[in-house]
Amino acid sequence: MTAGRPAPAGPVWDRPEPPSRAALSPLSRERIVAAAIALADADGLGAVSLRKVGAALDAGPMRLYGYLSTKDELLDLMADAVHGEIELPLDAGWRETLRALATGIRAAALRHPWFTELAGGRPNIGPHALGVMEAALAALDRSGRFADIDEMMSARGTVTAYVIGAVRSEIAEQQVERASGVSEAEWRTATGPYLKRMLATGRYPTLARFVREGADRSAEEWFTAGLETVLDGLGQ
């Protein structure tokens, strides 16, 4: 919170925007959020500040305070905008709905790698995020398979936790590869002799079996396989 600035009255989504006025660079929450997302897509969340967003819009940071009160509110708006990119399945079965939402979250996170940092933190309560949650819970409710709303919420949370964890790992691998300049194939070639020596000790027989027999899957295929395992567990 900026020193001397009164606390905002309720969530940012409940507060109206200032009246529009003639200006060389007109503002709106939508334009502010779009500029912030562009900065985060290019350089990560660390690149997002009210000063930098204002500069991108040719507006001083003080003008932005009419539309939001803190950087945290800006991050909330950014997370909700990305939730708005996720297509909501209509009247599908619970597995189909959770599968579609999980796939949509992964796709959105790969477009916006910073998204998992916000989606995995405090609950997102913007209108688009609530819509994603409602779609999942409604499908679980229609199925009649779950005892009560707490069990449905637990099932939704289990899938969300899997998706966020899996996508974070996938993004982290991509970022390491870009930062190091070493591709996965090059890394495997460099570490292959060491791994062979370790497996030859006989201390890791199950892992050795995986290396010999395991499928060579893409990141998307591993994600899908893991998701199906989670859904199978919920369906038992």
Results as ranks from 00 to 15, higher is better:
residue 95 R to N: 09
residue 109 A to W: 10
residue 136 A to Q: 04
residue 143 S to W: 12
residue 125 I to K: 14
residue 147 A to S: 09
residue 124 N to S: 15
residue 107 A to V: 15
residue 95 R to W: 06
residue 159 V to C: 00
residue 162 Y to H: 05
residue 135 A to P: 00
residue 157 G to D: 15
residue 95 R to G: 08
residue 105 I to D: 13
residue 156 R to E: 15
residue 175 Q to L: 08
residue 147 A to Q: 09
residue 162 Y to C: 11
residue 107 A to N: 13
residue 98 L to V: 08
residue 135 A to C: 11
residue 97 T to Y: 05
residue 103 T to A: 14
residue 127 P to W: 11
residue 126 G to I: 10
residue 165 G to E: 05
residue 160 T to A: 11
residue 102 A to G: 12
residue 121 G to K: 15
residue 144 G to E: 03
residue 99 R to L: 04
residue 142 R to K: 13
residue 115 F to P: 02
residue 102 A to D: 09
residue 169 S to K: 10
residue 140 L to Q: 00
residue 161 A to S: 15
residue 167 V to M: 01
residue 155 A to R: 01
residue 127 P to C: 05
residue 149 I to G: 06
residue 108 A to C: 14
residue 119 A to E: 13
residue 96 E to M: 11
residue 122 R to T: 10
residue 154 S to L: 15
residue 152 M to H: 02
residue 166 A to K: 05
residue 115 F to T: 00
residue 145 R to C: 08
residue 115 F to H: 08
residue 134 E to N: 07
residue 104 G to Q: 14
residue 138 A to Y: 10
residue 101 L to F: 06
residue 146 F to R: 00
residue 145 R to W: 02
residue 134 E to D: 11
residue 140 L to F: 09
residue 170 E to D: 10
residue 150 D to M: 07
residue 94 W to R: 03
residue 135 A to T: 13
residue 174 Q to A: 09
residue 146 F to S: 00
residue 175 Q to H: 09
residue 135 A to F: 03
residue 126 G to D: 04
residue 154 S to R: 15
residue 164 I to P: 05
residue 127 P to Q: 10
residue 130 L to R: 11
residue 168 R to G: 02
residue 172 A to T: 15
residue 94 W to C: 01
residue 115 F to Q: 00
residue 114 W to H: 06
residue 102 A to Q: 09
residue 112 H to N: 15
residue 149 I to E: 13
residue 118 L to F: 12
residue 177 E to F: 01
residue 101 L to P: 00
residue 109 A to Q: 12
residue 168 R to H: 10
residue 133 M to K: 10
residue 149 I to A: 14
residue 138 A to W: 07
residue 168 R to N: 08
residue 135 A to R: 06
residue 145 R to P: 01
residue 107 A to S: 15
residue 98 L to P: 03
residue 112 H to Q: 13
residue 147 A to T: 10
residue 169 S to I: 06
residue 96 E to N: 06
residue 120 G to V: 09
residue 176 V to C: 00
residue 161 A to K: 07
residue 171 I to F: 00
residue 109 A to N: 12
residue 163 V to G: 01
residue 108 A to T: 14
residue 137 L to S: 03
residue 98 L to T: 02
residue 132 V to F: 05
residue 116 T to V: 14
residue 98 L to D: 05
residue 134 E to I: 08
residue 174 Q to C: 02
residue 152 M to G: 02
residue 96 E to C: 07
residue 125 I to N: 14
residue 110 L to Q: 14
residue 102 A to W: 03
residue 138 A to L: 08
residue 164 I to D: 04
residue 101 L to E: 01
residue 118 L to Q: 12
residue 165 G to P: 04
residue 143 S to R: 02
residue 155 A to I: 00
residue 157 G to T: 13
residue 146 F to V: 01
residue 103 T to F: 12
residue 118 L to I: 14
residue 152 M to S: 04
residue 106 R to P: 12
residue 117 E to R: 13
residue 113 P to S: 05
residue 165 G to Y: 08
residue 147 A to P: 03
residue 158 T to Q: 08
residue 155 A to Y: 05
residue 134 E to Y: 07
residue 145 R to A: 09
residue 168 R to P: 03
residue 162 Y to Q: 07
residue 141 D to N: 07
residue 163 V to I: 08
residue 177 E to K: 09
residue 167 V to H: 00
residue 120 G to Q: 13
residue 135 A to D: 02
residue 154 S to T: 13
residue 147 A to M: 05
residue 130 L to E: 10
residue 101 L to W: 04
residue 144 G to T: 01
residue 139 A to Y: 01
